[in-house]
Design a protein around this nucleic acid. Structure first.
Length: 576
RNA sequence: UGGGCGGUCGACUAAUGGUAGGUCAAGUGCCUUUGACGCACUUUGUCCAGGUUCGAAUCCUGGCCGCCCAGCCA
């Protein structure tokens, strides 16, 4: 008899692996088993350039860098890739640190590529001495022409064979500031005929007479990304250096410098960028939206920046869950925006306290309710969390309900309020609409109704009567006013870059991405909401008090609407 | 076109030569003091063609399609 196989033994009780494998984790496991880095612990780094705000795409990189290291007992550094003083600013450094922390991560070391400028310079001298680098006097234009094309090899620069002594002298004079911007560059001597264009004598240093946000005027030559990144990783003894796919072609240079210098062999691993439908994740284009004032700023709640989604009311937990669900691979696709919204709702559903808010108020008068009487109805704060407790909500004869919750002529399948129809007022009473009052334009401005005292609290009456619809309400006399900012997708197309020839992505901006409800009525418990407080306005959506919000002048951002199967059904064409 | 990297339900992603599975979306029903949440069920997939193998999403060959690279940006 043959040995029973593993599958038969585990039966069907085996739980699914809670951490599905991904190819990077596999590489790390393999490297650890092979002791590729000796006994070194896993070390990663998150290396943003401080030239803009972090966005949702960076969430993926951040989670990968921090979680993967943590999973193996390793550490993660935050390193600013600040090799281009013309684009980088302290403002961005500050926002990036705040965003990483908001996402829930704390770095081990805080570094800057600029910390390594001295070392990088010394290594450049070493490469010159070894005949592996040279100073080139060609202009940027000439360098481009010498580089060749995708199909033709490049040509050597006439300066490629300068003596070591001359290169050393020239490079030193570049550093001293003897030459203007663009006059000379230091290039690695690799291979002008390489099929990989990145290997055709890449530029290592350029002359930039510019103040650096950290090193000030100390330098007028600055290293290029390719010359700085791998060595920075190496200096920090980074074992697994994750970056996005477009750097795959740069990996040979990354390795070339490390090998020539004989330093710690950090390993670059590329993964796919996060793309989201209806969303732009390009720093350049996001900056353009800010500069052209298409949005209110980097933290406009419609922006996919971390500061934008924070203000919008998204939670770090939701973002982490989303990123985990999206996974990581080497394919380039686009994740459905609905996936993001799902994880935002999932998290908020568990933690947001409920409240009642009426967006478009319609007065409801309960004719048989005693004038002047006020009752305190008990409402549960969160049905998903019994510990969240209850609160009192005042109820009286005159209320506001949402215009969408009353229809004089109800379509098929509609089970909210309409003449002769009975519904439940959440946590209050059953009411039956009896008549309407209209304005000169023929619009319903007031609905009259009667209530059933036997349904107090919203409970079914003893006679066993039931209603299909439950609607929310706010007591007219106790309501507090608020401004509700209703956000929608910033772009009208799944791919915002999909524009007719000659047009810009801005042509796809959604003109209805922000709608403001200025006359919203809220239950009084919301009067004390503080900026950042999150709520579910029942049957409407999740909202977050904006930093603009003040006592007496409340402002809420709609984080995400609740799913609405009635709206879906209506859109499909009525009754099912 | 030279080089590089990829193609698994509509989307994202597992299966590492041995039952193509999960999440989102979509649909149906149940539940319901949120048309929410939850629960159950359902639809849909290995780019194509050959080959190796008892057995191929996986290995091989040849196609096809997509993305990236010609910054003194990162």
């Amino acid at each position: 008899m043959s040995a029973p196989n593993l599958k038969a033994n585990t039966g069907n009780a085996a739980p699914p692996n809670p951490k599905p494998s991904n190819f990077i984790r596999d590489i790390i496991v393999r490297d650890l088993e092979a002791k590729k880095f000796g006994d070194a612990q896993v070390q990663t780094r998150f290396p943003p350039e401080p030239n803009g705000y972090l966005h949702i795409g960076h969430c993926k990189a951040i989670c990968l860098d921090f979680q993967l290291a943590d999973e193996f007992g390793g550490k993660t550094n935050l390193r600013f890739d600040d090799t281009n003083p013309e684009k980088e600013e302290q403002e961005y450094v500050d926002s990036i640190m705040a965003d990483v922390r908001w996402l829930g991560f704390e770095w081990e070391g805080l570094h800057y590529a600029s910390d390594y400028f001295d070392q990088l310079h010394a290594w450049a001298v070493k490469l010159i001495e070894a005949g592996k680098a040279y100073v080139d006097d060609l202009t940027a234009d000439e360098i481009r022409q010498h580089r060749g094309t995708l199909t033709e090899p490049g040509k050597n620069s006439p300066y490629r064979d300068r003596s070591v002594a001359e290169n050393l002298d020239l490079f030193e004079r570049m550093r001293q500031g003897e030459f203007p911007n663009g006059a000379k560059v230091l290039r690695a001597k690799i291979d002008m005929a390489a099929p990989n264009i990145n290997l055709r004598d890449p530029v290592m240093y350029r002359i930039l007479h510019a103040e650096h946000h950290r090193t000030g005027a100390k330098w007028c030559i600055y290293p290029m990304y390719d010359y700085a990144h791998g060595q920075s990783d190496s200096l920090e003894r980074v074992t697994h250096s994750m970056c996005t796919l477009e750097f795959t072609d740069h990996q040979p240079i990354y390795r070339w410098y490390i090998e020539q210098l004989g330093i710690f062999p950090s390993q670059q691993i590329e993964f796919d960028r996060l793309n989201l439908t209806y969303t732009l994740l390009s720093k350049r284009k996001l900056r353009q939206l800010v500069q052209e004032k298409r949005v209110a700023g980097w933290d406009d709640p419609r922006m996919p920046t971390i500061s934008g989604i924070r203000r919008r009311g998204y939670t770090p937990e939701a973002m982490r869950n989303f990123v985990a669900a999206v996974g990581v691979s080497r394919t380039n696709g686009s994740t459905d925006f609905a996936m993001l919204e799902h994880f935002v709702r999932e998290d908020l559903n568990k933690r947001a306290h409920r409240a009642m808010a009426v967006l478009k108020p319609l007065k409801l008068v309960i004719d048989n309710y005693p004038e002047g009487q006020v009752e305190e109805m008990e409402a549960v704060n969160n049905p998903e969390d019994p510990g969240a407790g209850v609160r009192k909500v005042p109820f009286a004869r005159e209320l506001f309900i949402d215009q969408d919750d009353f229809k004089e002529e109800p379509p098929k399948g509609y089970f909210r309020l309409s003449p002769g129809r009975e519904v439940r007022l959440r946590f209050a009473y059953f009411v039956t609409a009896t008549s309407v009052v209209k304005n000169a334009a023929g619009e319903v401005v007031e609905v009259h109704a009667t209530y059933d005292p036997a349904t107090r609290g919203g409970n079914n009456p003893p006679d066993g009567r039931k209603v299909k619809g439950t609607i929310h309400w706010v007591c007219a006399r106790h309501a507090v006013e608020a401004e509700l900012r209703l956000y929608d997708k910033l772009f009208t197309k799944p791919d915002p870059n999909d524009v007719p020839e000659g047009q810009e992505f801005t042509a796809n901006l959604n003109a209805q991405s922000l709608e403001v409800a200025t006359t919203a009525k809220l239950e009084p418990s919301l009067a004390s909401a503080k900026p950042g407080d999150r709520y579910q306005f029942e049957r409407v959506g999740y909202f977050c008090a904006d930093p603009d919000s003040k006592p007496g002048k409340l402002v809420f951002n709609r984080t995400v609407a609740l799913k609405d199967s009635w709206a879906k059904q209506e859109k499909r064409g009525g009754a099912k």
